[in-house]
Design a protein around this nucleic acid. Structure first.
Lengths: 188, 188
DNA sequence: GGTTGCATGTAAATGGTTACATGATTGT
DNA sequence: ACAATCATGTAACCATTTACATGCAACC
């Protein structure tokens, strides 16, 4: 799925500027499955205008450059439908977080814990976002389905990590410490 | 996390050829968080040999080209440790499957169901792989932690999709069908 | 007899991202 | 004063994939 199809897809939901398309890509439902930067979106829209897949209406603004509002044409919609029928590429995900954890024995003391704390914070903030997000309850059946999925995955992730983080937080660098009689209370 | 670090990481587990590194990247734990093709691995190993980050031992073979077995050097290991301490990049995932589902109303009858069936087959085969996979029970605490995580995510995914697929499989193209008195038993 | 697996490598093409340029407005 | 948001666009750079080249052995 290239930038072009992503733009076309978003434009089937209504007209939008390149800037707005970018915003949609980095928030909500789309952020979970696509990526694109201005550097690819703007040229894509320009080329698709030439090709008659989208149309562009210009709105003057004060100070800011003209806002170019794109809408999808019949030809564009047809092409998009065709794209959707293609066999989907395999999902691909990159995660430095998991890669690093795989080598958790190489990390200095406390690093793993910090990493996991950060991840949990992130996952929790994502859950909150999901809850406010209108996408889950509006746009389309697909979006609702996906929002529900996201929510369950996030919850499962948090639950699992909280439950099992101790497996990574044992201190590998010293022998098992004999519990001293004066068991220190964890500060903070 | 670039190819170089990925290769170094894998080599910390023991010596390996470029070919073997590729295999590891596409299977098991690594497949979940990194990606790389021969076209990036071979040049990376060559350059790192020049730079003294890895060493190469050649083994003659009949028919096949010499097998080049790489091992990590102290310098390489040091660099790898440094890489691991860097703030991890945000996870990034692309999923045609989810993108297409977002536009499920545009799909012809039955297409959504087929898509979902395929996805479920895939997820189930992944679960089976996880179960046979020695990685989950051997390599490292990190790998075990991850394998457990994977398993739960896969199970949650399957459960959710099976439970909620009906939300996407309603027939939008006709009015709600009045249930006929002779309720057909689902064939198969 | 064709595909798959083993095994390495390169060059061209792809498909981006990053950084820059521009600039007003609004918020801290 | 400084950062962020809105808004577009380009060019240089980047990493990687894809396709090719080579070739044997084992499996079906």
């Amino acid at each position: 799925m290239d930038v072009r199809s992503v733009c076309l897809g978003i434009l089937t939901l209504g007209e939008a500027s390149g800037y707005e398309i970018k915003k949609m890509i980095e928030e909500g439902a789309f952020s979970y499955c696509v990526e694109a930067s201005y550097g690819s979106i703007y040229p894509a829209l320009a080329r698709m205008t030439e090709e008659g897949l989208v149309e562009c209406r210009q709105e003057s603004q004060d100070g800011k450059p003209d806002k170019k509002i794109y809408s999808i044409t019949d030809k564009g919609a047809e092409l998009f439908r065709k794209e959707l029928l293609k066999k989907p590429d395999q999902d691909r995900s990159k995660s430095d977080f998991w890669f690093i954890l795989l080598f958790n024995e190489f990390l200095p003391d406390g690093h793993t814990s910090a990493l996991i704390d950060e991840r949990l914070d992130f996952l929790k903030s994502e859950i909150k976002e999901t809850q406010n997000d209108p996408i889950g309850t509006s746009i389309s059946p697909g979006a609702r389905f996906m929002a529900g999925f996201r929510a369950e995955i996030l919850e499962t992730s948090i639950r699992y990590i909280e439950k099992n983080r101790h497996l990574l937080e044992t201190d590998y660098n010293t022998d098992v410490v004999k519990p001293s009689l004066s068991k220190k209370v964890a500060s903070k």
